[in-house]
């Protein structure tokens, strides 16, 4: 992130010392100076302008803020930014390539797996972690994997279908990769 200048507050952060963190976000190395108490969700949203990560409940219940930390779903509203120092973080902005949606995104669109869209980034990242580990989940396995993410609009049935849609779409590719190796 290059900026020509940055305004420094005369008395930064009430005298709290800042820590420098280096986090690889969606494949790109990002450096920031943060208060130790800054939540990862806030660094991503306000610091790195990645507003696809939403904060819903502040208590680790709703999962709207779910990101992948080294491939594992983490609720970024109850993780400090300093805890992510040296780690790889994936947000919803990292799912699609410039031109193409990720199969999970396609699945959510095709199966009408979202309405207001607020829970969707967290849902999709949790789904990605599931499918990375288990490319052929049952409906129950999908429901269990998503049970840390709340949705108030859809009733989940279409979200589950979306994930199963993506699993089916991703499987032949996964199989082809395995064949090729």
């Amino acid at each position: 992130m290059t900026t020509l200048y940055e305004e420094i507050r005369p008395e930064p952060h009430g005298g709290i010392p800042v820590r420098r963190v280096t986090i690889t976000v969606n494949g790109e190395k990002r450096v920031a100076e943060v208060e130790p108490r800054l939540l990862l969700a806030h660094l991503l949203r306000q610091g790195f302008k990645l507003t696809g990560t939403h904060t819903g409940c502040d208590t680790t219940n709703c999962g709207a803020c779910t990101v992948l930390v080294d491939g594992v779903p983490a609720k970024s509203c109850t993780m400090l930014a300093v805890q992510a120092d040296g780690h790889e973080v994936m947000t919803v902005e990292g799912l699609a390539s410039a031109s193409e949606l990720h199969p999970i995104q396609e699945g959510f669109k095709d199966e009408h797996g979202l309405q207001c869209g607020f829970c969707t980034p967290g849902m999709m990242l949790t789904a990605k972690a599931l499918l990375d580990e288990n490319p052929d989940p049952t409906e129950d396995e999908v429901r269990w994997a998503l049970s840390g993410n709340l949705c108030r609009c859809t009733g989940y049935q279409n979200i589950v279908k979306s994930v199963l849609w993506a699993a089916a779409k991703m499987r032949p590719a996964a199989a082809a990769d395995q064949d090729g190796s």
Binding site: R45, G52, H54, L101, Q105, G117
Partner: peptide, 15 residues
């Protein structure tokens, strides 16, 4: 509307 929501490009008030 899914096109923006799926990419994390919705525009909610906190954004």
């Amino acid at each position: 509307e899914d096109n923006r929501f799926l990419r994390g490009k919705g525009n909610y008030v906190d954004d």
